[in-house]
Design a protein around this nucleic acid. Sequence first.
DNA 1: GTCCAGGATCGGA
DNA 2: TCCGATCATGGA
Length: 309
Amino acid sequence: MEQTECAGIQTTTIPLPSPVNLRATLECGQVFRWKRCLFPGRPDLREAYKGVVGSVAIVLAKDQEGLRVAFDSSRVSEGEVEGAVAKYLSLRDDVPSFESRLRAMDPVMAKAVAFGSGLRIASQDPWEALASYILSANNSVPNISRIVDNLSARYGEPCGLGLRAFPTVEALASRTQTELRECKCGFRDRYLFDCAKKVSDGEIDLTSVGDMDPPSARDELTRIRGVGPKVADCVLLFGYHMLDVFPVDVWIARAMSVHYMGGRAVTPQEAREEGIRRFGPLAGYAQEHLFYSSRFEALPGRNSPSGTR
DNA sequence: GTCCAGGATCGGA
DNA sequence: TCCGATCATGGA
């Protein structure tokens, strides 16, 4: 496990208004930048994570007082870090209410929520979410993380703690498709490249997408090559915090079929409509609990290779 | 060697 | 409109 040097590192504590499950939140596959590590100066904190929030590298862990955050005080103020972390982890979401409402819906959801209680839908930077989920097509979570690391290492700005931020739109748009391929993007290199150019040119305005209703925002995002229904929904959920969308990947399609649709073969579109019909404004949280508990074996019905744990 | 992964695109029926 | 092949890459 990686050590984080202590020189210049400051820590602060954020009181938690509601439960936060760091493992579920950071390892469920919605974000790709976090690695287990030791918390600087606190060997008693066994479950710490090092990663990047926007343009700030931090180490996160929980203790009795709340969420401890280590950061490089020469780069960012305590207040800025606290604000960034609170937004990133969506600390204003009324998760206890969400979870009690989901648990009351059906036994499958009750079990899923019990397994991943405290999971937060993160609020990533929309551009980082868009780029990351373009890379997610027909890919695995560990491999997506590897590609994101490669891109950040090569084209991102240093952001403290020895890490680099995810590359800006301009940083990628000014490269070549071949250079992106060298980061192991695979066949997605041209999608990522096209996307960076469209955003850089102003052909797609990521700020205005956030002001649209979800169906319009979805249509807008799918104008980008490499962005289909599933990727668009993930960007809306994890980048824009639109909690009423229901992204359907192979895991969710399987889970919806097995648990809610009689085990018959269902199209992603059917699974999506059923998820939205059942879970409505909580569709996003319901989906992420289903995904997390399906992948990590709290729910039966998985018939594919095991996850990373 | 084969199959799968937080899918999307394309050409042909 | 629908369906199958195809797209890099790495792990099981």
